[in-house]
């Protein structure tokens, strides 16, 4: 089985798939990739199912050595990735061979990088997902971020299926992946490169679209005006659980700050008493007690997930119908390429 040896882990590099669904009623967060769009693109390039597990690297890139042959694809934050010192393209399927070393230099934009491997990553599934949930120490590689010296097992992919191009490598890679639940790369990737126009530009100022939330009526008109017409900065107190923003305080109506603890969904914008909004992200707790002013739309998550502390957000309102259109249009484009 091919593995990846971790020579440098980077700031925070861990296994994430699309997320752990079905357990939120027990208080278990979904986790999963922050930028699901980039995760899906990376997987599609190497012939995996779109929601399969990849490595998610935050702000700094890892240095990895391959012990076997496989295909990889790098998406998300924009770098100059290199293989044995030679530059390789992003958003492109690249074949790697035993002994190859992958590294990253010069982060140009964005925050989170996804590395997909043909056949996925062979770590156990915990509660139906391979995602790492750091706070409970479950999923992913031993429930934690990667550290130097780790050897990450990769899934095998069925190289014998018609049309699958083989990177030249060990004979073991030619064995079909029978009986393996992991290693789902069963098909030849539809395309080995993503057209540039499909990749959004990660800027330091972004307009993020929202739909009004269940407690929008808890806020003064002036508060709603602040929310929709001034800029909010992503603070350093932002992580996979949520982005704490700072900017013009959003005024609640008198005494209408808290609600009876209730569910939170991906992208819920909560406003605690100090008026500074919090956007709930992948590792969000399942319930909360602050008024929910709005919700970021699914289509804009790829932009939001690539923002770093210091970046600025301007919120703009859209409708549920339009949000769905943005979402399905993009889906059609990705899966149609």
């Amino acid at each position: 089985m091919a593995t990846v040896i971790v020579h440098k882990a980077g700031l925070l590099t861990m296994v994430q798939d699309r997320g752990r669904f079905g357990y939120q009623r027990y208080g278990m967060p979904v986790s999963g990739a922050m930028d699901v769009f980039s995760l899906e693109l990376a997987n599609l390039l190497v012939g995996n199912d779109p929601g399969d597990a990849c490595l998610e690297a935050t702000i700094s890139g890892p240095e990895l050595e391959f012990t076997g042959s496989t295909w990889i694809a790098i998406t998300g934050a924009v770098w100059d990735p290199h293989l044995n010192g030679q530059g390789i393209p992003m958003n492109t399927a690249v074949d790697v061979r035993p002994g190859d070393r992958l590294g990253f230099r010069g982060l140009r934009s964005g925050c989170r990088t996804y590395i997909a491997f043909a056949g996925g990553i062979a770590v156990p599934s915990v509660m139906d997902s391979q995602s790492t949930y750091l706070r409970a120490g479950i999923g992913g590689f031993q429930g934690r971020g990667l550290i130097q010296g780790d050897e990450l097992p990769l899934g095998t992919y069925n190289a014998l299926l018609p049309g699958n191009e083989l990177p030249p490598g060990e004979a073991t890679d030619l064995l079909p992946s029978d009986g393996l639940t992991l290693g789902k790369a069963k098909r030849k990737p539809r395309r080995t490169k993503i057209p540039e126009g499909l990749i959004p530009e990660y800027k330091h100022e972004q307009t993020i679209r929202v739909i009004s939330g269940p407690e929008v009526h808890y806020f003064e008109l002036a508060g709603l005006r602040s929310f929709l017409s001034t800029e909010y900065t992503v603070t350093t107190k932002s992580d996979r659980m949520g982005y704490r923003l700072s900017g013009e305080p959003i005024k609640h109506k008198e005494g209408m700050t808290n609600i009876i603890s209730a569910g939170i969904s991906l992208g819920t914008v909560q406003v605690p008493g100090d008026g500074q909004p919090i956007i709930l992200m992948a590792d969000r707790q399942t319930s909360g007690g602050y008024a929910r002013i709005a919700n970021v739309i699914t289509a804009d998550f790829t932009l939001l997930a690539q923002m770093r502390p210091g970046d600025e957000i301007r919120f703009t309102e859209t409708t549920l119908d339009r949000a769905r259109l943005f979402c399905t249009d993009r889906h059609r484009v990705i899966f149609g390429i």
Binding site: F21, G22, Y23, Q24, R25, V30, I260, S261, A262, G263, I264, S265, L266, T286, S287
Partner: peptide
């Protein structure tokens, strides 16, 4: 997902 709470049911 379903997230039942005191007075609401969230459907994801």
């Amino acid at each position: 997902d379903f997230i039942p709470s005191y007075n609401e049911l969230m459907v994801c």
